[in-house]
């Protein structure tokens, strides 16, 4: 017979909620980049409004965690999981904010043509969302090695960001009239770079759940 059936069920429910919130955040990133590429103001505005749903989900999960701590006195691995979930929630919510931030940049850009077709920024988004998916997979499987591997992938995002930055800098040096447009794209890229950093924070929490050790692994250059 399984002991603590109710507690286990509620803990699994929280883990499932994290997956749901993770996929909401992933969709937000993908949509924000689509809106940026296509300069779709309606899509961007919708995404900014929908950020409230992510925030609401975050509070909903947080409340479940607090109730579980208050009523079930979780310990050891259970305690580490719940405390880490509270941290992961914050990280996910911030990634959602970055997606909303990119959408706000889309609103600023309006109908203005991009300087060039966007290639590396969508790549950064693909890489970041892949890292996010993998981190949540590592969370569910409680796989510290996988979490470490995801952290290592952050270098790719950083390199892409470097590339985007250098390229846009050349545009600005050549023609100062491009500064506004180039800066906005750098902001968008920076939001993605920060999102990937947040994913590495999530991975550090997963390592803590599994090993009980707090490791600072995702030290970014930015």
């Amino acid at each position: 017979m399984e002991i603590r059936t109710d507690f286990n069920r509620r803990l699994r429910e929280i883990q499932d909620d994290i997956l749901i919130m993770g996929s909401m955040v992933e969709t937000a990133i993908i949509t924000s980049i689509k809106a940026l590429k296509e300069r779709d103001i309606d899509m961007a505005q919708q995404l900014i409004n929908d950020d409230a749903l992510i925030n609401r989900k975050r509070f909903e999960i947080e409340e479940k965690c607090i109730k579980l701590i208050a009523t079930q006195q979780p310990l050891a691995g259970d305690l580490r999981t719940i405390i880490s979930v509270l941290n992961i929630l914050t990280e996910l919510e911030r990634v959602g904010d970055y997606a909303a931030g990119i959408s706000k940049i889309v609103l600023m850009i309006g109908n203005e043509e991009h300087l060039k077709p966007l290639i590396d920024i969508p790549r950064m988004a693909d890489k970041t969302t892949l890292m996010l998916r993998e981190s949540l997979d590592a969370f569910i499987k409680q796989d510290a090695d996988k979490a470490r591997a995801v952290i290592a992938e952050d270098d790719d995002v950083d390199n892409l960001y470097d590339q985007v930055f250098r390229e846009l800098l050349t545009f600005m040096i050549e023609d100062p009239r491009t500064i506004t447009r180039a800066t906005r794209l750098i902001w968008a890229a920076h939001n993605l770079e920060r999102s990937a950093d947040r994913v590495t924070n999530i991975c550090e929490r997963i390592i803590y759940i599994v090993t009980g050790k707090m490791e600072e692994l995702g030290a970014s250059n930015y």
Binding site: A76, G77, R80, G212
Partner: peptide, 13 residues
């Protein structure tokens, strides 16, 4: 918070 032995973990949780 971080027992070393699985049996301890199982008992206290």
């Amino acid at each position: 918070t971080n027992p070393k032995d699985k049996r301890t973990e199982d008992y206290i949780t």
